[in-house]
């Protein structure tokens, strides 16, 4: 039986797709057969971040409508053959996603894959609802910023009331915090909410802190998930996150400001 992970946040632009791409690649690289699904119908972008935008033929809506089989729509990742991508439709609207259709797809994928990563769109409408509805685990991507924290709290409320597990009175969805775009330096100077500040409000199980990093843009420019950039801080942060999720015990990094006085003085980075 597969484990279904939703990557969600409520707010847009916090790093959901970057995270979905990174962790699905990380899970596959660790030897687990993984599929990542884009739920952002009408505004698909996971294909671009994964670098397979030119190989999209069929999408999730085609599968729901019976116009293509699941195997026809799945795209095998070029870097890792244990990873597949199911793209969203770019031309249809959000209402083309149905609960029944998504449920069937997830059920079929569960037979074949170990992990199913659902990349949720921003907002709380149909696409976001269906991305989280069937989930076993939720990765809450949050930026240390007021609107993102507020929206994350709202999403936590929805996860505990509007999901299949909630409706069936089953064990609740496991919720994990991924604090992204974190800048220890700005936290130190009091300009940015700290990890502790965010945790005082959300109090979630922390999977990891992803530092604000230039490598995220470089990775999306070239269409390679940032986790493959093993030298980058963000890439390492995501590797840690995947390892921790799989039960490894890795100390948290990228939380404290390590920039020395002289480096600050001379602007070194």
């Amino acid at each position: 039986m597969a484990r279904i992970i939703v990557v969600t946040s409520g707010k847009g632009g916090v790093g959901k797709t970057t995270t979905s791409a990174a962790i699905s690649m990380g899970l596959a690289k660790k030897g687990h057969k993984t599929v990542v699904i884009d739920f952002d119908v009408g505004l698909r972008n996971l294909d671009l971040i994964m670098g397979c935008e030119r190989r999209v033929v069929y999408d999730i809506i085609n599968v729901i409508n019976g116009e293509a089989s699941l195997n026809q729509a799945l795209i095998r990742d070029k870097n890792c053959n244990l990873l597949s991508i199911l793209p969203a439709s770019q031309t249809r609207n959000k209402d083309a996603l149905t609960q029944e259709g998504v449920g069937k797809i997830l059920e079929e994928l569960s037979k074949d894959f170990k992990y199913i990563v659902c990349d949720s769109p921003a907002g709380i409408e149909q696409g976001a609802h269906l991305a989280m509805y069937f989930a076993d685990d939720a990765f809450i991507v949050t930026n240390p910023e007021v609107s993102s924290v507020r929206d994350s709290d709202r999403i936590l409320g929805l996860l505990s009331s509007k999901s299949r597990r909630a409706e069936r009175n089953e064990e609740p969805i496991k919720e994990f915090l991924l604090l992204s775009r974190y800048s220890p330096e700005r936290v130190k100077s009091g300009e940015m909410l700290s990890l502790d500040d965010v945790q005082e409000i959300l109090s979630l199980h922390l999977l990891g802190v992803i530092p604000e990093s230039k490598s995220v843009l470089t990775a999306s420019n070239s269409g390679t998930p940032v986790i493959l950039d093993e030298k980058s801080d963000a890439g390492q942060a995501y590797s840690d996150i995947v390892a921790r999720y799989l039960g490894e015990n890795r100390p948290h990094r990228f939380i404290d400001d390590k920039t020395g006085f002289f480096r600050k003085l001379f602007g070194g980075k």
Binding site: R150, E191, M192, L193, S194, D197, E200, I201
Partner: peptide, 15 residues
């Protein structure tokens, strides 16, 4: 008072 602590205070009340 840092802007971060102001942010935290506002958030706590709102949430």
């Amino acid at each position: 008072t840092s802007s971060a602590s102001l942010a935290k205070e506002r958030l706590q009340i709102l949430v």
